[in-house]
Design a protein around this nucleic acid. Structure first.
Lengths: 249, 249
DNA sequence: TAGATTGTTAATCGATTAACAATC
DNA sequence: TAGATTGTTAATCGATTAACAATC
């Protein structure tokens, strides 16, 4: 709420840095573009996208160019939307030519903060927490899981997937020591709010919540929720609508 | 795309059944209302919401009434939005009074197809797949996990969380036998598309995809994607923006 | 009847898309 | 210069919200 820029207006370009108000939906798509660009860089012309002159040229990544039309197709969006999205980052393409893959990749990384590392703490070492702990691949993307938190004496002190399980009552010091930036809540619903309070007290301002129900957090704390039951329910809705449509026809 | 009703128009009220075009965002909120109503039913007046005369009346659920204002507050949305959302289901409230909790709950369940059971198959018995298999609580909501699918000979034939791991090459018959309605993809990105193709060939039309990257599916197949890396990246974006804002001030 | 609250219309807001001038 | 493609403006679309007539 606080400090929201005027509707439609891009925030002031402070100091040249891209501190603008980028719509949430746009940010989500920007990360998708970044992912797609990664694939483009690796294999030249991956799926049907004919890049001129690259058939025999080898991996000449330095001056590889992609048009908004091509990139949009790969990401599955409208090219106008893609150009609009990229325009929030400033000007990074060349009219009449397209976007330099390396330059654009870097601009996206910079804008999204993907150059930096954001250590993660996972609270709740149950099925899901353990699965997250064992999941390779987050670390490579800048999200190393550094810490597991739980309140179960039987788990505290043990190691899960090579990570120490720390008493959640020591969250503050442990998070400070591990320089944790993001907290993941993988506990039962009943304790999710308490755990959130603890994480916030430990200085964490970004939370990914897998527990059902919504969390109450102070302003300035960002919460994203992943609700598996909700996703299933949305699929169920479509199933049931299909069913009803079929029957009534 | 096919069969989309005119913008703004509610689809024809076929046969009295609620076969209307409900916006996706509305459907998501309807499930949230249903969840919140569940809590209201269990404990009368849970958190600060003073329900008249219920202090000593006991659990007289039969004629419990809730206003759009109250329910909206509990669900964390605007009351106008709530009424608009509910209006897609038809008329279920009483002007000047409010909504009967039991009636509204039932209407929501009916509209969302939450009365029915949607058996689930999980493809990919890695960390995440095993965690899902071991997760109690889906079954109670109408989503029993009936089947695990994998292609690893070391896993096929074993049981994980009491569920048999079946060769994915037998997906078609296994899904038919278990009456699977929803397929969950918890495999690495590299094989996600192949697995989706197999599930679709097995007759599954609703897919929850945990693998990064987007799936190509025929029309009529509904895919929802849960991208943990994306969620972390969105949190990272906010972290980095905070950082930059702080530095530049 | 007077008070209250729904269901719905109309106004607002924001996001998507089409179109095109700028410009490589 | 002619052709191509960006960056941006204006038009469209859909979703949110405010306001109020209907009505219990």
């Amino acid at each position: 709420m606080a400090g929201t820029a005027a509707p439609g207006g891009l925030g002031p370009a402070v100091d040249g840095a891209a501190v603008r108000t980028i719509p949430e939906a746009t940010v989500a798509r920007l990360t998708a573009y970044l992912q797609v660009l990664g694939h483009v860089g690796r294999i030249t012309a991956p799926a049907g996208a004919a890049t001129a002159g690259s058939v025999l040229a080898g991996p000449d990544r330095a001056d590889e160019i992609i048009s908004s039309e091509e990139l949009a197709a790969l990401a599955g969006v409208n090219s106008a939307k893609l150009r609009k999205d990229l325009s929030y980052l400033g000007t990074h393409g060349t009219r009449g030519v397209g976007y330099d893959v390396a330059t654009l990749t870097d601009a996206l990384r910079r804008a999204l903060g993907a150059h930096d590392v954001y250590p993660v703490a996972v609270a709740g070492v149950g099925h899901l927490g353990s699965a997250l702990a064992g999941y390779r691949g987050f670390a490579g993307r800048g999200f190393p899981i550094r810490l597991l938190l739980d309140c179960d004496p039987a788990k505290i002190g043990t190691a899960v997937a090579g990570l120490p399980v720390v008493d959640i009552r020591e969250a503050a010091s442990a998070c400070r020591d591990a320089d944790v930036a993001i907290g993941v809540i993988a506990t039962p619903e009943a304790v999710a709010q308490q755990v959130a309070d603890v994480l916030i007290a430990a200085g964490i301002r970004s939370i990914l919540n897998f527990a059902p129900g919504s969390l109450t957090v102070p302003e300035g704390v960002e919460v994203r929720r992943v609700d598996l039951a909700l996703e299933l329910q949305l699929l169920a809705f479509h199933e049931s609508r299909r069913e009803r449509t079929r029957v009534s026809t």
